[in-house]
Design a binder for these strands. Sequence first.
DNA 1: TTAGAGCTTCCCATCGTGGGAAGGTCAAGC
DNA 2: GCTTGACCTTCCCACGATGGGAAGCTCTAA
Lengths: 142, 142
Amino acid sequence: MNIGQAAKLGGVSAKMVRHYESIGLLSTAKRTASNYRVYSEKDVHILRFIKQARTLGFPIEHIKELLSLWHNQRRSSQRVKELAQKHLRELDTRIRELSEIKATLENLMQHCHGDDRPECPILDGLATKNLRLGRPGTVRVK
Amino acid sequence: MNIGQAAKLGGVSAKMVRHYESIGLLSTAKRTASNYRVYSEKDVHILRFIKQARTLGFPIEHIKELLSLWHNQRRSSQRVKELAQKHLRELDTRIRELSEIKATLENLMQHCHGDDRPECPILDGLATKNLRLGRPGTVRVK
DNA sequence: TTAGAGCTTCCCATCGTGGGAAGGTCAAGC
DNA sequence: GCTTGACCTTCCCACGATGGGAAGCTCTAA
């Protein structure tokens, strides 16, 4: 099948399929005489695997390793679980960071009237407070 | 003062100060005869404001508006609160998404031995399940 | 034969930040 | 005075994952 159908069945865009090939997540696809990429059912399975892992937020580099573990019949499930646990910790960290930001923002908003008067504790807070969010660390909101 | 000190006092990098100027978040800085940017205490206050707003995860475009509201003595606090509420909703959405991902991942990991055997429900789940986030119960690992 | 859908590669944009090169400026110590 | 090193300037590139779109080729159905 062509890239369009493989992408559709795999639940990703054709654009992403080419991208995954370019970064070595997928092996180089065979080509027809007219240079069209050709895919098999197996490739569709791989695309689905990638899609699911991306849905869970695994970064591409981890997915690369997960794919190789998946294909390796002599793998140990230990490494897989390690990767999952690492990702879980990152999710936890992120959730905590965002929750701290949320709490700080709610705190600032609490006393803002939100009417036509200019007084605004939110602006005052941004201007003068030293907004410390829990433990210091990189705050990435997205 | 020069850009280095202003950046330090504002809690951001000199690189970012130049960037903020280039995207119109800061007005164009005056220059010395030798083309060095010159900053005042007022600029440092603005940098601090930006820094705090970034710490709370506000996108640059919102910060642009917050800054102009801050400088406008005839503002209504309503608009400020609107922006904050919008950001709060986005934080909530993101926290919810991440929590759903986390729950799904924990579910997958639950039955993985994480030892030297190859059997791995995590890989099986990525390969075969239709990991639907946000519907508790639809992701099941036997 | 032609239209249009699908394929190819290539470049650009996102968003906020950092890295680094190549070169100009300044102040302190000799 | 001259050297050294810290600081400044602009410019380009990178990240991660994705989408948009242009220009051009291929395939298929009418």
